[in-house]
């Protein structure tokens, strides 16, 4: 009776760190710190200030996005969160996907999802109409009390 062959460990493929990979590595750390600040600000403003969670409706969101700085803050948060999350998921795929094929497929799905969400989110933030009107030109019900802005 012979002992079963031990499975050999995969030979190490020498892949030097390149500038892009290192840039993403630093980005991951920097964006993480910025996101902590942004997300807790977001949660505090939305859930703690004013009437808390019950205040969130169309008028509340519209009121925020009527101000350019909230548009900028939310856009930065969207971008950083998506890139940070996508990069992290990409690390996970690289760590755990077994074959070249499954790695390529998962990375492609991840990339497409990230692009779609970033484009969609940016469109919502930058083309948002806080004071929508009906056919007659009157404000629709539920618009923020400050309409029209600007």
């Amino acid at each position: 009776m012979t002992a079963p062959e031990l499975s050999q460990p995969m030979p190490r493929t020498r892949k030097r760190m390149n500038a892009t990979y290192r840039w993403w590595w630093v980005f991951q750390r920097v964006s993480g710190v910025i996101l902590v600040v942004l997300i807790f600000t977001h949660l505090f403003v939305n859930l703690m200030m004013g009437d808390g969670v019950s205040q969130i409706d169309f008028a509340f969101v519209a009121g925020k996005w009527a101000a350019w700085y909230w548009q900028v803050i939310d856009f930065v948060m969207l971008l950083l969160a998506m890139l940070h999350g996508t990069n992290g998921m990409s690390y996970l795929i690289n760590d755990y996907a077994r074959s070249r094929r499954s790695r390529a497929i998962l990375q492609a799905i991840l990339g497409i999802a990230a692009v779609v969400i970033i484009v969609l989110g940016s469109l919502v933030i930058w083309t948002f109409e806080p004071c929508p009107v009906d056919a007659t030109g009157a404000f629709l019900p539920g618009v923020p009390s400050g309409c029209p802005f600007n």
């Binding site: 493929t13 030097r16 760190m17």
Partner: peptide, 11 residues
Amino acid sequence: LNDKAGVWKCR
């Protein structure tokens, strides 16, 4: 250690 399978693989 400056390899993709070196320290940069640490999570």
